[in-house]
Amino acid sequence: MTKKNLLVAGALLATLGAALIGGTSAKAAEGAPIPPAQEWSFSGAFGTFDRAQLQRGFKVYREVCSACHGLKYLSFRNLAQPGGPEFSEEQVKALAAEYQVTNATPNDEGEIFQRPGRPADRFPSPFANDAQAAYANGGKAPPDLSLMGKARTYERGFPLFIIDMFSQYQEQAPDYIHAIMTGYVEHPPEGFSGVAYNKYFLNNAIAMVQPLHDGQVEYPKNADGRAVVPETIDQYGKDVAAFLVWAADPHMEARKRLGMQAILFLIVMSGLMYFTKKKIWKRAHAEEHA
Rank of each mutant, 00 (worst) to 15 (best):
K3V: 13
N5A: 15
V8M: 06
V8P: 04
V8A: 14
A9C: 11
L12E: 13
A14N: 07
T15W: 07
A19E: 08
A19G: 15
L20H: 05
P36D: 07
W40D: 03
A45Y: 02
F46K: 14
F49P: 09
F49M: 09
Q55H: 07
R56W: 12
V60C: 14
S66I: 00
A67V: 09
L71D: 02
G83K: 07
G83P: 08
G84D: 14
P85R: 11
S88F: 13
S88N: 12
K93V: 11
A97V: 14
A97N: 04
Y99L: 03
P106M: 07
D108M: 03
E111P: 01
I112D: 10
P126T: 05
P126L: 03
F127C: 03
A131Y: 04
A133K: 02
N137M: 06
N137C: 13
G138L: 08
K150L: 07
R156Y: 09
P159N: 13
I163D: 09
D175G: 00
I177P: 00
G183E: 04
G183F: 02
V185E: 12
E186I: 04
P188R: 06
P188I: 11
G191M: 10
V195C: 01
V217C: 04
K221D: 00
N222A: 04
N222V: 00
A223D: 14
G225F: 02
G225Y: 02
R226Q: 12
R226D: 09
A227P: 03
V228R: 09
E231G: 06
K238V: 15
D239A: 12
V240F: 11
A248Q: 01
R255Q: 11
R255I: 05
L258Q: 15
G259E: 08
F265P: 07
L266N: 10
S270W: 13
K278N: 06
K279S: 11
K279L: 10
K279N: 08
R283F: 01
A284V: 14
A290Y: 04
